[in-house]
Amino acid sequence: MDLVEVAKKLFDEGVEVIIGYQGNFNVKPIFAKANEVDKLTFNPLCIYNLTNYLTMEGFVDKVDKIGVVVKGCDSKTILQLLDENAFSRDKIVVIGIPCNGVIDVNKIVEEIGEFREFKDNEFKIKWEGDELVVEVNGKSYKFPKDKILLEKCKVCETPNPVVYDVLVGNLIQQPHRKEEFKAVKEIESLSLEQRWEFWIKEFEKCIRCYACRNVCPLCYCESCVLERLEPEFVRRAVRLDENIAYHLIRAYHLANRCVGCGECERVCPVNLPLSLLNKKVAKEVKDLGFSEFLKPIEVGR
C-alpha cells in the first residue's frame, strides 16, 4: 500500500490530522486533514523530523488522534518521547516508512540548476538500487548514492522504523551497522591545543539564534534553562565564553536522549558540527555506564 491509501484508511478509522510531507522538490511539512490526503508524499528529500510537532504546547491535547509519518531515525524519537511520558501512546498513530536515506539537496541543485526554473509537479525523484534518479523537465539525471547522501544516513543504524502502527512499503534488508563514533575519535586524537583551536573557531561563529534548540524534537521543556533569568546560568551575550557554555549545556541536556536525527546540524545557519558534540556525550555516557542509571523510570505503560 502506498502512503495516500494508508492515510485514507486511517482517516476512516478516526484519525483527525496526519503530520506528513508535501511537495516534490519544495518539500514542506503538512498537517493534512481528510480533504488534503492526496498531498501527502514521501521522497528522498524528506529530511525533516516531524515528531518535533508532537510536543508543541497543547497540540496533542487538542486533537483526538494524530497520525505522524516517520522514517527510521525519527521513530527513535517517538520511543524516547514515550519513555519520558511526553504524550500517551494511544493518542498517536505512527506511520512508519522504511527509508533508503535522505539526501543533501544542495548537492543535486548544483547539477540540475536553479530550482525556480521548473514547476514542482514536473520534478520526480526516487531511489533505484544504489542510484538516485531525478527527472526534471523531461531530462533525467543519475547520482551515485555515497556522493549525495547525508552524513547521518551513511552510518544509519535503523533504516526501518523501530516503532510503527502501519508500515508503508517493505522493510529494508541491511546488514546490522554499529555506531563507531568515527568523527568523534578523529577530534579526540588531536592535542588539547588543536582541539581548542578547532572549537573556538566553530563557537565564535555561533550567533545564538537558538534554532538548534527549537528544532530539536527532544528539547520541549516549557521553561528552558537557557532562557531562565533567575538564576541566569547563560547570559544572552553572544560571546565566545557564553557560546561555549550554551553548547555544553545544550549537549548535556541531551545526554542519553539524543537519537541522532541530525536536525540541529541541518538548521544551523553557520554550520556548526553540533552532532559531533551530541555524539561525544552519547559515547561518554555509554562508556561510563550511566545509560541504565539515566533511563526514565517506567510508569505503567
Binding site: 591545543e193 563557537f203 555544553l248 545526554a255 561525544k280 556525550v281 561518554e284 561510563l288
Partner: peptide, 12 residues
C-alpha cells in the same frame, strides 16, 4: 565526570 570529558573534548 561527563563535564570533565566534555571540557577535555573542547580543549579546556
Amino acid at each position: 565526570e561527563l563535564l570533565r570529558r566534555m571540557l577535555e573534548f573542547v580543549g579546556m
